[in-house]
Design a protein around this nucleic acid. Structure first.
Lengths: 150, 150
DNA sequence: CTGAATTGCGCAATTG
DNA sequence: CCAATTGCGCAATTCA
């Protein structure tokens, strides 16, 4: 499937376009100077209001044309550069976030451990109290108090 | 917006290449069927090792040529699709990591608070002991603190 | 409407 | 030799 083709494949047109930087190296001729623009076949395009009577042909030799092309080429290059840059930034962002993540996980691990130690201390203490009170049961020196859950 | 469809198809769009042109089909004349390959236009130098001397000309009408082109066009499309897909995946990854990050931060906040409560309990207890055993004046600032840097 | 920015696409050179 | 990538220009669209 492709687009190129349905009927005839090959396209036409191509003009000679040369890169500004370089000239055509060849001595071949340039043939079509005017090429049809916009296939039009189907039926779309063409503003409803005005049927452009414009040429519908583009003079590829025109200075005007070359100038437009060159401008567009620059714009394209610029746009693509920007796009690439953005993509790279995104990748960097990923790495950044990954690092941040690891840092956070480490911190969690630390806090968790600390918490665990404190809880153990509490338990130990509680046991000591229990040992002391075990005998009779009168002294409850406790100020006891907060159980926080969790 | 224009993915498949619209216009193309019939006439094509063609791209022109840097080289001189040609096309077939149109009512335009056909001029060069053989074009030099690798003009300086993009081309750069030839590999030092082997200066293969091939034709240096390409027959754009050749079936062989068209076939190669079409295959390459498919490959290009495929490759670009893949590339785009990857870019999107990367963006998704960013969001995923951001969420994960928030989750971790919340957990840290919770743990920190929990730890703080337990420490306060210790302090209180320490004070009680101090009241019982120690006169006045000595501040037990002992507990406390971790500075996490960064 | 005008010009810049985007986007889809084909070609050709390169790379693996 | 072939598929995958990549740089590049063209043209159609979309944005401002």
């Amino acid at each position: 499937m492709s687009k190129t083709s349905q009927q005839n494949t090959v396209t036409d047109a191509n003009g000679a376009s040369v890169i500004h930087t370089q000239a055509h190296t060849s001595g071949l001729q340039q043939v079509p100077q005017l090429v049809p623009v916009s296939p039009g076949g189907g039926g779309k395009a063409v503003p409803p209001s005005k049927q452009g009577k414009k040429n519908s042909f583009v003079d590829r030799n025109s200075d005007e044309y070359r100038q437009r092309r060159e401008r567009n080429n620059m714009a394209v290059k610029k746009s693509r550069l920007k796009s690439k840059q953005k993509a790279q930034d995104t990748l960097q962002r990923v790495n950044q976030l990954k690092e941040e993540n690891e840092r956070l996980e480490a911190k969690i691990k630390l806090l968790t451990k600390e918490l665990s130690v404190l809880k153990d201390l509490f338990l130990e203490h509680a046991h000591n109290l229990a040992d002391n009170v075990q005998p009779v049961g009168t002294e409850t020196t406790t100020t006891n108090a907060e159980n926080n859950g969790q």
